[in-house]
Design a binder for these strands. Structure first.
Lengths: 221, 221
DNA sequence: ACGCACATTACGGAAAACCGCAAAGAAAAT
DNA sequence: ATTTTCTTTGCGGTTTTCCGTAATGTGCGT
């Protein structure tokens, strides 16, 4: 079983739940942190001291406050740790259940498991720990098909930026000018139009207003 | 101190946290449910049996699943209970921190306290229980000024309906037709235009997209 | 160098949004 | 009944969005 676990989660009430799972598994060597940066520093330090953590359970979204954070989200933390190929298993524990998000975390950031907070969250977390321990990956049943689904035309950073500017009240023309000013390409009005059209089709939106409404609901912007 | 408490919250890990607070207060007569409808039924039943609950701690948003729910959200549950003037105190416990939402829950649904989930959520929950016990209301510091802010009273149901339809992708023309079909007045295209203009001015929005983006952020729609 | 696929830009027309002002209607006051 | 005021509707003109299509550019393999 895992010997040393780090729990990164800013809501005190939730980490309580995680810890009850750990205790049920007789894991008593665990530490809690509330910021991604703290998690990163503690893991690095422990590794250098030859007393490494072997499991990280982390939330994805953290409320921002006054403290400046280098790793603002769980994804970034996970990706950073995995890129240093530290020998640590990572379980993402999030309310987020959108396939796209799950894909990002599992494929891009390379987490070992993705557990959805929900009615069965703690039970699934328990299962995830067992799976990861045995070198497998794990996905909550709710998002189990996220990786198999036909990857829908990716929504990339460019798309998100366009939608953000739209939501901030810029006209397509202004977005074009904005992109030219920031050397972002493509930047022509025509290109902006085309991209918005692609997004509208992708989300089955009738018009720009509808599109931004949907994107907001999905938490894309 | 409260004698009998109901906790309504669909995320198991969070209700664990709530319960640890209750236990610290030596309240051991509590029941957990994961659906608003269950909460309503249990409270009604207990009241009829002359063993009423005297405190309800409830989340606001519940993930939907296959089960049809009469009360889909915490607000509706709170409002229904308060309208029957059962003698029960109610604390809303939510991640939501938008003033408009807080106003709705406190003023419209008539909750006794509003606690934001967050780093200090459990501590504040503890304070809220104490306040409510003494007949006071309580707001998390983060949303403490939500009720004092200049209430945007001039946004009425009609305005909200217009914005909802806009957000759902209807053109101003289609909204006009929709209103005529539902006998809502005014319904002319010109009137819709004028209303949207008023809303844009009110929220300092550049255009309809911007308006709907703002309205979503404020929780109006 | 050439052709080919794909990305980007350009353009023109129809629809919708945006904007100001005027006409018509309804309600209230005198 | 008439005036006054406010609400609702109508309308013309400009800008922006929407949509199809065409032209240009760019990278890549042969």
């Amino acid at each position: 079983m895992f010997k040393k676990v780090l729990v990164s989660e800013d809501l005190g009430s939730i980490s309580n739940g995680i810890i009850s799972v750990l205790e049920a598994l007789h894991i008593d060597n665990f530490i809690q942190v509330q910021y991604c940066d703290d998690a990163y520093l503690k893991i690095k330090k422990a590794s250098q001291d030859k007393r490494p953590f072997d499991l990280l359970i982390t939330d994805l979204s953290f409320k921002t406050d006054h403290r400046e954070q280098k790793y603002a989200s769980g994804e970034k933390l996970i990706k950073a740790l995995k890129e240093e190929h530290l020998n640590i298993k990572i379980i993402a524990y999030s309310v987020e259940d959108r396939p796209q998000k799950v894909r990002n975390v599992m494929i891009d950031s390379k987490a070992d498991a993705y557990v959805c907070k929900g009615r069965n969250g703690l039970k699934e977390l328990d299962e995830a720990i067992a799976a990861v321990l045995n070198g497998h990956t794990y996905l909550s049943p709710k998002v189990g098909n996220a990786l198999r689904e036909t990857a829908p035309a990716e929504i990339d950073d460019y798309d998100v930026e366009v939608m953000k500017l739209l939501a901030n009240g810029l006209s397509q023309d202004q977005i074009s000018v904005n992109f030219q000013g920031h050397n972002i390409h493509p930047s022509s009005l025509s290109a902006i139009e085309k991209r918005i059209l692609k997004l509208r089709n992708h989300f089955n939106a009738n018009n720009s207003v509808h599109l931004i409404s949907i994107a907001k609901d999905l938490g894309l912007i």
